[in-house]
């Protein structure tokens, strides 16, 4: 009778936990910025899987835990010990094997997702004297064809090349085809884009949350990164690797445009003569270091220390018209 009840309770709980896990897996999509790249869909699917399984494990552990907290308490005057159960080999084998299988599965699924993104990333970086070492990771033990959207993008048009330069504290984008520069990143929708990331000083992080991929920018290295924007709109590019004093202000907008708008923008930018762009870091620095102007540090309550001066504002063909009044809007 007790046993039957226990089985019943456990079954009902298992069903509830499963439902909750599915619900959480569905919910997880809403925790992210918009899915603006083909890669982001892959990441979100993977994250959803992890969320579902994670919820299942969490509730699976916490449920019995809380049940125990409620029902396995000593009564007030009970000074006796509980039954001396020291272990159970079968249980221990099961709870060693289950996580093992689970994490190996998750690793495998993550690997598949990574292959489908085929973001290239820093593979070109490895110049250990054994360049062949990279190949095995791209060999074909499993299905590693890129995701459909990515394949379509690559097949319809050539890959769009954009050079990205990071410095303390500005981003400069160079479009080699038209030889123009910009402090705002404009991208054509539904085309594969290859970024070549370079840093002029320290480590930076190239991170567009809506695209779900971040990559450090390393001085002395050219790092390639390929992405496929699939949704027009304005997103944010942030520096994800702490790069010094004005690191938090090292942001810019990413504008994904239809092919026509993009071409139009390129043409417009090419017609502009290069001009000094607004730069948040340089602006703040000049505010704080003008000698005797009386307005030093008018904005903060606690004064700071000496800092590396920001690089001069970049001189570019195109810079967004608006000058942010307060730090990054």
């Amino acid at each position: 009778m007790m046993k039957l009840r226990a089985i019943l309770v456990m079954t009902i709980y298992a069903i509830l936990v499963t439902l909750a896990s599915f619900w959480m897996a569905k919910q997880s999509y809403s925790w992210f910025p918009p899915e603006a790249s083909a890669e982001s869909k892959l990441t979100d699917d993977l994250f959803s899987l992890f969320t579902g399984l994670g919820t299942f494990i969490y509730l699976g552990v916490i449920g019995p835990f809380i049940y125990s907290l409620i029902f396995h308490r000593a009564s007030k005057y009970d000074r006796s010990d509980a039954p001396p159960i020291e272990g159970n080999t079968w249980l221990e084998v099961i709870w060693t094997a289950t996580p093992l299988v689970l994490v190996l599965t998750l690793s495998f699924v993550s690997y598949r997702t990574y292959e489908k993104m085929s973001i290239r990333g820093p593979m070109e970086l490895v110049h250990l004297h054994v360049p062949q070492m990279i190949e095995p990771a791209y060999a074909e033990p499993f299905d590693s064809t890129p995701q459909q959207d990515i394949q379509n993008a690559v097949e319809t048009e050539p890959i769009e090349q954009i050079d990205v330069t990071a410095r303390q504290w500005a981003w400069v984008f160079h479009y080699p085809e038209k030889d123009i520069t910009s402090t705002e990143l404009h991208l054509p929708v539904d085309r594969r884009v290859r970024f070549t990331l370079r840093s002029q000083d320290v480590l930076h992080g190239f991170y567009i949350p809506a695209f779900r991929v971040s990559q450090y920018v390393v001085p002395n290295e050219d790092i390639n990164l390929e992405l496929t924007p699939v949704k027009t709109g304005t997103y944010r590019l942030r520096d994800s690797m702490y790069s010094g004093t004005y690191f938090a202000a090292n942001q810019t907008d990413v504008v994904v445009q239809s092919p026509n708008d993009y071409q139009q923008w390129l043409a417009d930018a090419a017609a502009q003569t290069p001009n000094s762009a607004f730069n948040q870091a340089a602006y703040e620095y000049s505010q704080s270091s003008e000698p005797g102007s009386g307005n030093t540090k008018d904005k903060v309550a606690v004064r700071g220390w000496a800092t590396i001066p920001p690089a001069p504002p970049p001189v570019v063909n195109y810079a967004p018209k608006h000058e942010p009044k307060s730090p990054p809007a």
Binding site: L91, P99, V103, S107, P122, I134, A137
Partner: peptide
């Protein structure tokens, strides 16, 4: 994200996840 080659990314992904096994043993 630090300019790490893919094979290294994959290898350390698996080892990292393996830590869950002994940790799980303790929690259970």
């Amino acid at each position: 994200a630090s300019a790490t080659p893919p094979w290294m990314r994959m290898f350390f992904m698996v080892t990292t996840m393996l830590v869950a096994v002994p940790s799980g043993i303790k929690v259970f």
